[in-house]
């Protein structure tokens, strides 16, 4: 029964992540400045990391990337999403394991910053232009802000949602 519950919860979280990602894509934070989004679905992924653990969270990230690419995006946009998502999740997992004194805010900041690093690395490799290295620095600072926000939201979710009902 417990495993069924976990799988059900993972499926629910995945759909929430996809919807959040889709809604965010409709409302750019700053028009004309590409690559900047709040990344609310990362709050949900962090909830999953704390509640469901690494294997489920890995599947959630992969599921979100693949399903979003097929429903709203393309194979080309999937390269960026996958590079960002994979690097971000690996760094968040490592931070939780190695730095237990980091709260969801530290984890969220690293997740956001490394998401941007992953995506921009693909873009820099493809276009090979120094302008994008500059831009990466700007995106990293933005990631600190958005990561703090999503980390704070993740903490609210973890503190307030009744875990025993779900897991």
């Amino acid at each position: 029964m417990k495993k069924t519950k976990r799988i059900t919860l993972a499926a629910m979280l995945l759909s929430v992540m996809m919807i959040l990602g889709y809604i965010e894509s409709l409302f750019p934070v700053i028009v004309g400045v590409p690559g900047i989004k709040i990344g609310l679905s990362n709050s949900v992924l962090m909830l999953s990391l704390y509640w469901l653990g690494i294997p489920f969270s890995f599947m959630l990230m992969l599921g979100k990337v693949v399903l979003t690419a097929f429903t709203f995006g393309s194979l080309q946009s999937m390269q960026y999403a996958l590079a960002g998502g994979l690097l971000s999740l690996l760094v968040m997992m490592a931070t939780m394991k190695l730095l237990p004194s980091a709260t969801t805010i530290g984890v969220g900041v690293l997740g956001a910053v490394f998401h941007n690093i992953g995506q921009m690395t693909v873009a820099i490799l493809q276009l090979q232009t120094g302008v994008l290295v500059y831009y990466l620095a700007i995106l990293m600072v933005v990631g600190i802000l958005t990561g703090t926000l999503t980390g704070y939201i993740a903490r609210g979710l973890i503190d307030r949602l009744p875990k025993r009902l779900f897991v």
């Binding site: 730095l99 004194s101 980091a102 709260t103 530290g106 900041v109 690293l110 990631g143 600190i144 703090t148």
Partner: peptide
Amino acid sequence: VSKTDVVIIALC
């Protein structure tokens, strides 16, 4: 935020 968080943000 914890001290670790502050260090993480500063390093970023």
